[in-house]
Design a protein around this nucleic acid. Structure first.
Lengths: 341, 341
DNA sequence: CTGAAAGCGCTAACAG
DNA sequence: CTGTTAGCGCTTTCAG
């Protein structure tokens, strides 16, 4: 323990120290209602010297208001989510709302637990990644009566409202861009994550758009765990050994694409002439690589920003109109690894 | 709103629905005290069909117990911190404690605000990065009467206790290793972050150990913002143009070291013969690079684990002995970029 | 095994 | 401008 005083300070202590009623002390500390300058100073002085920190638990219970926004995401290790968080924080910093993060590790049951835990603090709103949840999670969210924004994905039916991109469309567009440049023998490299619905949807959109042009993926490879860069490299090597005729590699994220780039360069393969590659996310990291890998921006920061704005607006005015689906449009960045005529 | 019922459910609703007193319902829901099987079933049934989520705010106020651990870190964008978080979560998942993250952006005043905000929820413990805090922050932590673990750094005086590594020592050891391999004309590349005390301490330890052998850094370069990989590359190019005679580059983190590696390889420089390089942190990302960059493990995960264990133990038993400074010992990984005789 | 009463520390709603 | 009175929804404590 940093101190041995067993009892934390209360409003009453400040009240006694300053000779002002608890109620007035409370007013001063919250900047609510009119308080004379003199009293205010006395209270502030007393609070400061005592080192009083208000008890939000009691405050929240009494006022029935909690300035917390629950943010539920699959992981913090994937840079995508910290970037979304940054967008959210940026907006909430200008309000009196505060984000609280929960991590699900892509597990629906864990999401359910985290959600239950979070909702039991009666937050003012929830931002949750994805549109796929357990029935119980959906029931809880619906019953909570607070604004819920599902983020990152718009391919599905939101509980309340959604901000994101269509991953199916993203996959389709990348497929079209690749075909348009004349690539024909395409391999896919991704994560072994049945529960990463967004990756799955991109894959589905991708194969679907290829199929429409009569093209099929030649081969595919999936990984899980480990350094994404190393895995991207390994999978690329394996895949090329098996299918030397490939002329394009589509990676489900930029990190493995970067690993693939390393491998191809090592092998002295001409990019994008002999083989083209593309990833997904538009991560900043790519900037320093020997080639600018083609990718598609996932609009991470905008999604965070928009989601937080929606929550803030709804908290401000619960009657506000709601737009069910806010779809952002990612753009392809061709870089140097997807040839352009 | 996901629902239009204005009033969230209370224990009383479950009590009425099940015909059992609120007190007994509370017992069932918390698994406390003996309740007959029959009553328990009735209560659980009622709670489930109603979709009741307990109100922790009220519970915490009444019981004077909050199962939250405040974790205060400078940033989520630097992979180091998510990894520490993972260590913390891993331990806390087996307790009834829950981490709540606050981000300071390396700003002492923001740390103070975040801390105030967090402490006002009366958490059971605090884990905070670094040993440098504002006076007010220190006062708050001391007055809180809860366990405080300062992490990542042990070069200084902890408020309560600390778990980390000595960055000064880390810098010194790397300097010795470099000198020992015969490198003499050394450049330093780092972040322009006066407030990143750990980076500063590493730098100080580094130059100090060089000085002891009569060696001085030939040149240095600092960056801020942008893609670390790209910056590492740029700084390296700039530095080599200015000082072509350099034979070693010490980078303050692995990302910029990786960027540097890219640049050196591009220029066809022999690594580690003509120029050796080293970074810091031991990030997983390095695994996929064309060369294994020399680095030093920052013990990120262990720090998180240990810190959480300390908190859990102290919450369990507030009288427990405390070890003021728990210093972990990072090891140099030579990789392929720091020659070994 | 179950229930009734009394708060936890704060704020809403009134009175002055 | 300041104070008083009732709770917020739960748990603690003590009686059955």
């Amino acid at each position: 323990m940093a101190s041995d005083d067993p009892r934390p300070l209360t409003l009453r202590d400040v009240s006694e120290a300053s000779g002002v009623s608890e109620m007035t002390v409370s007013r001063v500390l919250r900047n609510r209602g009119d308080v004379s300058h003199a009293t205010r100073e006395r209270v502030l002085e007393a609070a400061k010297t005592l080192g009083y920190v208000p008890n939000k638990i009691a405050g929240a219970l009494a006022s029935q208001r909690v300035n917390l926004v629950a943010v539920i995401i699959p992981s913090l290790r994937n840079m995508v989510f910290p970037e979304v968080m940054a967008g959210i924080s940026g907006v909430l910093e200008n309000t009196d709302l505060q984000p609280v993060v929960g991590v699900t590790d892509y597990m629906p049951e864990k999401e359910e637990r985290v959600l239950y835990e979070m909702l039991s603090w009666r937050p003012s709103g929830v931002i949750v990644a994805g549109l796929e949840h357990t029935e119980a999670s959906i029931a809880m969210l619906k019953a909570s009566g607070i604004p819920v924004v599902e983020i990152m994905d718009t391919d599905g039916k939101p509980i309340d409202c959604a901000v994101g991109i269509s991953h199916r469309r993203a996959g389709r567009e990348m497929a079209r861009a690749i075909l348009k440049q004349g690539y024909q023998r395409i391999g896919f490299l991704g994560t072994k994550m049945p529960l990463d619905h967004r990756a799955r949807k991109r894959f589905e959109g991708f194969t679907e758009a290829l199929a429409k042009e009569g093209v099929e993926i030649v081969t595919q490879e999936f990984y899980s765990g480990g350094s994404a860069l190393a895995k991207g490299r390994e999978m690329t090597r394996t895949m090329l050994e098996r299918e030397p005729e490939l002329d394009f590699l589509y990676y489900s994220n930029d990190m493995i694409a970067a690993g693939g780039l390393m491998e191809l360069l090592d092998q002295g393969i001409d990019i994008p002439g002999q083989i083209g590659i593309a990833g997904f996310n538009g991560v900043e990291l790519l900037d320093g690589l020997p080639r600018r890998v083609a990718t598609m921006d996932a609009c991470r920061s905008e999604i965070g920003t928009k989601a937080a704005q929606v929550i803030a607006a709804r908290v401000e005015n619960p009657e506000a109109e709601i737009e069910r689906i806010m779809e952002l449009t990612p753009r392809i960045s061709y870089g140097d690894t997807l040839k352009r005529r």
